[in-house]
Amino acid sequence: MTATSPTARTGQVASAQPSARPGKRGDRTGAASRAPWLLLAPFLALFILTFVLPIFVAVGSSFTKVTRSGLFGEAGVKSEFAGFSNYAQALADGSFVASIGRMLLFGVVQVPVMIVLCTVLALMLESASAKWPGFFRAAYFLPYGVPGVIATILWSFLYVPGLSPLFDVAALVGLTPDFLGANTVLWSIANIVTWSYTGYNMLIIVAQLKAIPGELYEAAKVDGASTWRVALSIQLPLIRPALVLTTVFSIIGTLQLFAEAQVLKTVAPTIDSQYTPNLSAYTTAFAYNDYNVAAAQAVLIAVAAFVLSFAFLKFTNRKSS
């Protein structure tokens, strides 16, 4: 507003008639230029408080070293710039690095299995061959309403020998499974995650399938394309955005894994306090009270999630072009 009014008032420029209009509209643009900020204000204020500031705090404290003198720090607390020493300490911790490796292994197996499963389920539910699609959709989506902690408690009962009927069923076919052993517990967690999120991802894909225009199917029918052919040449290419979205969210989710491992720890002694990267950061912060190294770990996890999802997006973009 201030920028337009001087030119309107002085009006030295030859054209006097357009200058009248901006002057009149000045009040309107004034209100209109305040309005978006007013509308954005509550969101932005909370976003800054709960996203931007914590990120600065995390990065800041990851580069800080706090030394306390006296038993409880009563003789003064001294903070100083620590360079990368917290990061060095985090990365020198074999268990923390191992937990990242464990999550990569987990992601390489669990994410593709889940994405393939939910895509196949979505295609089957949307095909004319499916009976009662509404019932099945609801049944598959139901676990999403069960919080991860509750889902883990549920499955942990099914993993414990003596309590779980799964062992009786397995015994019938001559198997003695060990769901909580050192080598199997990771896949027991993968099963809980798959159980929880397959239906949700399936629903995103179903939504995208429903957005495919009917003429495409009609055209394929005229050309005599088989169901298999329709799935490969029409449906899969057109649901690509949904597949990319669900995969990126799954990658981020994998690196964040916490509740499942932490809850299963109570029945599975093979899960240690640094089993996943987040569990590691939590332990560092609250068991060892070393917030600075924990902050460095949190930053490393966020960076790893960002790099992986970014790399995946780049990879899929290059493949499509």
Binding site: T50, V57, Q256, A285, A295, V299
Partner: peptide
């Protein structure tokens, strides 16, 4: 990730 901001 939501858990990355929880600690700070």
């Amino acid at each position: 990730p939501g858990t990355a901001t929880a600690l700070p």
